[in-house]
Simulated assay, not measured.
Amino acid sequence: MIVFIIALSVAVIVVREYSPKRGIKYEVTDASLTQFNLTSDKILKFNLAVTINVENPNKRSDFHYEKFEAVASYKHDSLMSVSIDPFEVEPKDKHPVSALFKGEQKMSLPNDEVSKMKTSTVYDIVLKLKVKHWAKYATIKIQENMKMACNLKVPLNSNGKSAVKFEVAKCEKA
């Protein structure tokens, strides 16, 4: 019985220490919006660049990201999806991930939202992350799929300057 309790305690400690679920932090540390224009036929032209920091708080295990997809949306309309190449985050380290969303998208905004949008200088953009990552301990591979949401308030830059500074946004499980 004592051997069983010791083995169970060791297993719990190992799983807690090496689990991909253990406190991984995602935050958007920078966002730049250089174009955000709505045409008369409700086509949004946008140019958004973001930097996402992925932090591994574990002391011993690397995190291997097989899939990392970011989807930017405005007022419930998806703007664009960007896939990031696979990468790895070392123990007690951060890995910056950059994504560029540039293009055009037909919007389904009511007229009152259109007028608000045209006068605004800061935009509420939601960045949704879909990730698949794994960590390994000896022969045990622990894998997880996660969905995160980052609520951003991104100021529009005109002529390379913005009246408001972007504030770091933490991402939460969606």
Rank of each mutant, 00 (worst) to 15 (best):
Y74W: 11
Y74H: 09
K75I: 05
K75W: 02
D77C: 11
L79C: 08
L79S: 06
M80N: 14
M80Q: 15
M80A: 12
S81T: 15
S81R: 07
V82L: 09
V82E: 15
I84M: 04
I84L: 02
I84K: 00
P86F: 01
P86I: 02
P86N: 02
F87V: 15
E88R: 13
E88K: 15
V89W: 12
K92S: 08
K92W: 07
K92T: 07
K92I: 09
K94G: 03
K94I: 14
K94P: 01
H95W: 08
P96C: 05
P96N: 03
P96R: 00
V97G: 03
S98C: 01
S98A: 05
A99G: 13
A99I: 08
L100I: 12
L100M: 10
L100S: 12
L100F: 03
L100W: 05
F101S: 10
F101G: 08
F101I: 07
F101A: 09
F101N: 12
K102W: 06
K102G: 03
G103H: 09
E104R: 15
E104Y: 13
E104P: 06
E104A: 12
Q105L: 02
Q105R: 14
Q105V: 10
K106L: 15
K106P: 09
K106M: 14
M107Q: 10
S108P: 05
S108N: 10
P110D: 13
P110W: 09
N111H: 04
N111M: 07
N111G: 00
N111T: 06
N111C: 00
E113F: 08
E113I: 02
V114T: 07
V114I: 15
S115N: 02
K116L: 13
M117E: 09
M117N: 00
M117S: 01
K118R: 13
T119N: 10
T119S: 11
T119L: 10
S120M: 11
T121K: 06
V122T: 07
V122A: 05
Y123R: 02
D124L: 10
D124S: 13
D124I: 03
I125H: 01
L127F: 03
L127D: 05
L127A: 02
K128R: 06
K128H: 04
L129T: 04
L129I: 13
L129P: 00
V131S: 15
V131T: 15
K132D: 14
H133A: 12
H133R: 14
H133C: 08
W134Q: 14
W134M: 14
W134V: 11
W134T: 10
A135P: 03
A135Q: 04
K136M: 08
K136F: 01
Y137K: 10
A138P: 10
A138T: 11
T139Q: 10
I140L: 08
